[in-house]
Design a protein around this nucleic acid. Sequence first.
DNA 1: GAACTCCTACCTACCGATAGGTAGACACGT
DNA 2: ACGTGTCTACCTATCGGTAGGTAGGAGTTC
Lengths: 172, 172
Amino acid sequence: MRTRGYAAFSYADLAEKVGIRKASVHHHFPTKEALGTALIDSYLQDFEAALEQILAEEKTASARLTRYAEFFASSMRAGMMPLCGALSAEAFVLPASLQERVGNFFELHLSWLAKVIRDGRKAGELKADLKPRQTAIMLLSTLEGASLVSWATQQKNIVTPTFKEVLSGLEA
Amino acid sequence: MRTRGYAAFSYADLAEKVGIRKASVHHHFPTKEALGTALIDSYLQDFEAALEQILAEEKTASARLTRYAEFFASSMRAGMMPLCGALSAEAFVLPASLQERVGNFFELHLSWLAKVIRDGRKAGELKADLKPRQTAIMLLSTLEGASLVSWATQQKNIVTPTFKEVLSGLEA
DNA sequence: GAACTCCTACCTACCGATAGGTAGACACGT
DNA sequence: ACGTGTCTACCTATCGGTAGGTAGGAGTTC
């Protein structure tokens, strides 16, 4: 899903990669939609834990955001799109249950980013006039967009410099 | 292509929408790849002309960039993804001729943006320490990303505010 | 001016490949 | 005895694409 998108990946591909037959994959995930939702659910859960961990381990906004951006950069290095970025372009033709989960995923990210920004603003690290929600949307957009451009142009060193440039504009 | 992506749109869909039969569409565009390249070529040509026009009609960097961002905002309002944004997620499974054209498309945008930034910097409108190429990548990423997030979350008012926030960080 | 040849756009009917999905049997561990 | 995981074999729908034919307009020739 993260390299081909939802429409273009198939049970046949997956079965071959896993080393069992197509019908056996269906035993575990009866429909493609069920497989998709299971994947997003697990991905979202992992991400939720990772975001919590960042809050626990890093105390400055810039360190937190840099760790956050590293998720995008490293998935790019691993030759994969961020999951929800990969699915977003197809959102219109995704099963409703998947659309909803992509929405939830972005909402999780946006509320986490907004909290980090709010805290960083209070601590005087970030500019005082930042609107947390709006700035969160901007950061998420930039990282998803940088991943997309990096993916399409096959230039792997786009995400981190782009993020740094945006971050520097936020610091007090 | 701009609402479903490349894999998920079909000759059958297109034929029905145009009001002729599938085989007749094949008469004009023998293969899906040929249809895809024809579409990108025409899109790129239109965009090239539109970018030229902006340079002719607007003389400040901020006006030029605002007009540029309006392309993304208006295609969102029209219920469509930007073409190459829609195709990028699938880039890995796109026919080579399409991949190449998506690359060309982004390159056209990046070089135009870099020129606008360079000029704006010289004129003292933009911060003196901007790296034109890097900033161009950032602007393109942000606009493509904002379109993606806006598309997936079905919130139509994301592109313009996000762009404004980024632009304000570039002004001297 | 009728007859002829082209060409273009469209059609019906079909092709093989692949998509997601199902039925039913077999092996195996508890 | 039963549940789980896997298998082979098959289903229907749809995919991109092709073969071959028809209708009609533009030239060209007698």
